[in-house]
Write a protein that binds this DNA or RNA. Sequence first.
DNA 1: TTATTTTTCGATAGACCTATTGAAAAATAA
DNA 2: TTATTTTTCAATAGGTCTATCGAAAAATAA
Lengths: 214, 214
Amino acid sequence: MPDGAVKTEKKPVKKPVKKKDKYRQRQTEVIDAAAAVFAKKGYHGASTGDIAALLGIAQSSLYYYFKSKDEALEKVCLHGIKGYVERLQAIVAGDGSAEDKIRGAIHNHIEPVIFIPDYFRTFVGELRYLPENRRQKLNNMIAEYNALFEQILVDGIAEKTFTGSLDSHSTMLMLIAQCNTVPFWFGQFEQYSPAQLADMLADNFLQGALWRPN
Amino acid sequence: MPDGAVKTEKKPVKKPVKKKDKYRQRQTEVIDAAAAVFAKKGYHGASTGDIAALLGIAQSSLYYYFKSKDEALEKVCLHGIKGYVERLQAIVAGDGSAEDKIRGAIHNHIEPVIFIPDYFRTFVGELRYLPENRRQKLNNMIAEYNALFEQILVDGIAEKTFTGSLDSHSTMLMLIAQCNTVPFWFGQFEQYSPAQLADMLADNFLQGALWRPN
DNA sequence: TTATTTTTCGATAGACCTATTGAAAAATAA
DNA sequence: TTATTTTTCAATAGGTCTATCGAAAAATAA
């Protein structure tokens, strides 16, 4: 600005939303690809070049959508767990029986596992590779989720709907651990719908996978 | 050999065993360290430098005991599954009831998981990173193991000891998957012995982790 | 059209990692 | 002791990977 001209102050008043939406849509595609590659090769086994290749773009282009590989993993994990806590809160606050609630909780846990397996497998298997600072937030969400889950068991035991050989905390951990294994083997059960799978797991816990008929 | 002296043909007749034993003992320490590092950081997240650091030796020294990182992973996995098939064969061939056998199989599966957790975690979590050629042998062992496990369920259903909502193949896969999760959370259950843990898991399957008292 | 912004790209530095090599050190045998 | 074997080492070649940079291309606005 060699002369005294004042920069025109015409701010763009319209359509910033549309532009940001487009960016976010592309970013979602990028994170989808990251989830797929992380799930398949593991976080450390996956390179940013692998992610770019899946998208058909240059490796360096990825950094327009995230600023480090760590951040990509964080985004995948956050998306993997998104909505879990809120849905479980609604179930716990509902007025069904304890058995209804535990069945609802298992459905809540398993169905997204099946609909977004890449996100969930990454969340379950690769979260531990997130640096401590990024992992904090996710750990808090997990702690809250686990507490809600355990609350259902505590309530069910208190009102004598359930009896168990284990304490509620141990049972909660084992139950969630079993649900978390689902994306690693459900591919072998294509004859079952997600809801059926969830029902079967719930049955496993409520009455056993095997039982004596008499 | 400037003059015509013939090289003395005195082969060492004694103590080659001792020497080899010493080498093997050190090799076991090296593979132990590899198992610990693989279990903690994952195969791709672990470097040979990490393993050497744990042993307090130079990174290049490791290659006196294995000739590639892949081979180290293979050795860890083989040791992790060692004895599993043989013990399960003995259980299946025994003359206990189907319930005894399924309990025995769960004990067989879980106790080593707890005694050698680094090996087992590596076996469960990192086997998939073994190159195809090295994985073949292990896959065969797994297939044999799974078939034995399923045989117990098939027999129990045939003789009406068990009834289940799932087919025996699906049940086998889910049961093994649950057993495999043990090393990832059993640290939280230090009040229980391995045998108790195995009993509790068996109870989970036979009668449910939760059941209605009436 | 031209100007501006958004998106993608090629090139690359800097770091890390595996595996090899020949030699040094340590252990053992003679 | 000296000779031989076993074990460890430092140095490093050759490769891959992450993240950065300025420029090119594409999309959008004027």
